[in-house]
């Protein structure tokens, strides 16, 4: 069974085409991340799936049912907003149970479902508080709780972690993947942060300017980026991308090699380079190089490497890891 299927989805706001034709299939139980620079239409696409925006063209299927023109509440989805969108005047208990009480579920049953969700998310002691008396991470969990009690076929998350500090974000990433494993529902997660995409996704959808650039597992995108855009977007520090004559010499319009796939040597090497700057991160260090020919490049070497600024080194790419792109930015295989 498919969790979610988009076919030929487009969206225009007036004369502006924001989504320019999306075809996508998300399998049942998959954790799918939409990633792309801000303004590329991720939120709009998610809101189209949720039913908060109408499509201009195309169809949406959830669990095998065409929901293109269904009301949001009838699509079998639940959404967690970036701002959490908790109802400020209701307690945590009422926030989580609001949808159920609107559906006229018996009180005892609501209490049981809210209790179970609170247990799962460790919210039980906070049930009688108002949202303003909660920390960011707790609000986040309430928003997730409100989604869980709806028993949705698809969970939608719009940059849910971007309002949290770095430490909490790492923890919530873990909690969300745990939650996904526990409840096994299809999840669609929007972020502009490629680290979140790489660490959480079963499937990553890289978007750019209203189009899908590439769909694949995190390692597929990392190893075999289909376009220059994906190559530059996925991976940190970003891939060295070289164009112009230096790339032409290597048989491509654009040539890419990741910093971790360059090796440095005292002499020899494919290119000669000088060390301009070194960032020591402990476990490894990032070396900024002025390379004769290609120009500026980054290399990632071991943390203990006794390299110094101004040193002259040889630079050699791992031939198995080189990426070549044609003039249209498509990978050449």
């Amino acid at each position: 069974m498919t969790g979610l299927k988009l076919a030929g989805v487009t969206k225009s706001f007036g004369a502006v085409d924001v989504i320019k034709g999306i075809d996508l299939k998300v399998e049942h139980g998959e954790f799918c991340v939409f990633v792309g620079p801000s303004g590329c239409g991720k939120s709009t696409l998610l809101r189209i799936i949720a039913g908060l925006e109408d499509v201009t063209d195309g169809t949406i299927e959830i669990g095998g049912r065409d929901v293109t023109w269904a009301e949001p509440s009838e699509r079998g989805i639940a959404m967690v907003f970036q701002s959490y969108a908790l109802y400020p005047h209701m307690t945590v208990r009422d926030n989580i149970g609001f949808g159920l009480s609107l559906a006229r579920m018996p009180k005892a049953q609501i209490a049981a479902k809210v209790g179970a969700a609170a247990e799962l998310l460790q919210l039980t002691p906070l049930l009688d508080r108002k949202p303003r008396a909660l920390s960011g991470g707790q609000r986040q969990r309430v928003a997730i709780g409100r989604a869980i009690v709806r028993d949705p076929a698809v969970f939608l998350f719009d940059e849910p972690l971007s309002n949290l500090d770095a430490a909490l974000r790492a923890q919530m990433r873990l909690e969300l993947t745990d939650l996904h494993r526990k409840i096994g529902a299809t999840m669609v997660y929007v972020t502009h942060d490629q680290v979140e995409a790489m660490t959480m996704a079963d499937k990553i959808v890289v978007m750019n300017a209203g189009r899908i650039e590439q769909v694949g597992t995190p390692m597929e995108l990392y190893d075999r980026p289909a376009t220059v855009f994906v190559a530059g977007f996925i991976g940190s520090p970003r891939m060295n991308l070289i164009d112009g004559p230096a790339a032409a010499a290597m048989g491509a319009a654009t040539y890419g090699i990741r910093p971790e796939h360059l090796s440095l040597s005292d002499d020899g090497g494919r290119w000669r380079a000088r060390v301009r700057h070194i960032e020591r991160l402990g476990a490894d260090c990032i070396v900024y190089l002025d390379v004769d020919g290609p120009g500026a490049m980054m290399a990632r070497v071991g943390g203990a490497d006794p390299i110094t600024i101004g040193q002259e080194v040889g630079v050699t790419p791992d031939p198995a890891r080189e990426c070549r792109f044609d003039a249209q930015g498509q990978a050449v295989r």
Binding site: G51, A78, M79, S83, A85, Y87, F98, L102, A103
Partner: peptide, 21 residues
């Protein structure tokens, strides 16, 4: 925030319920 209206809509609230509740 408009998000509140939309969250309520997803929760299944009719327009008059969004307004009054």
């Amino acid at each position: 925030p408009r998000d509140l209206d939309e969250a309520a809509r997803i929760d299944g609230a009719k327009p008059w319920q969004i307004f009054f509740r």
